[in-house]
């Protein structure tokens, strides 16, 4: 049973690392600030979530698990606020976002 959880935790760790790489790629490749925020938010949600959950599974059941979950909840609450503030400031600041079509 414990080996199964450890294997699952390892798989989650690798998945999280993969999504961190995808987020970094998005940060470099996407053409404009608002689209880059989308790329970075993959790292913030799925990358960080999978890595922290994987660590919690490999560590076993203790107070540490609760701390990792608290870290996860804090990141899930604070990162959207930061991205929202950033996106709002960027829309006001750059005046002309890279859009395919106008608001329908």
């Amino acid at each position: 049973m414990s080996t199964a959880i450890e294997i699952l935790g390892g798989a989650l760790l690798i998945t999280g690392a993969f999504f961190v790489l995808i987020g970094a790629t998005g940060l470099l490749r996407l053409p404009d600030i608002l689209t880059r925020i989308h790329g970075a938010s993959i790292t913030d949600t799925l990358g960080a979530g999978a890595i922290l959950l994987g660590l919690a599974m490999t560590a076993g059941w203790s107070l540490l698990t609760g701390k990792l979950l608290a870290l996860l909840i804090l990141m899930a609450l604070l990162n959207p606020s930061a991205s929202h503030a950033l996106a709002r400031a960027a829309v006001h600041g750059i005046r002309k976002p890279w859009l395919e079509k106008e608001d329908s």
Binding site: V20, L27, I33, I37, A40, D44, M75, L86, A89, A90
Partner: peptide, 15 residues
Amino acid sequence: TVYDRILASNALGTK
């Protein structure tokens, strides 16, 4: 732009 740099520092902080 300056916003790209703020976004980069935010992503750096997460990592």
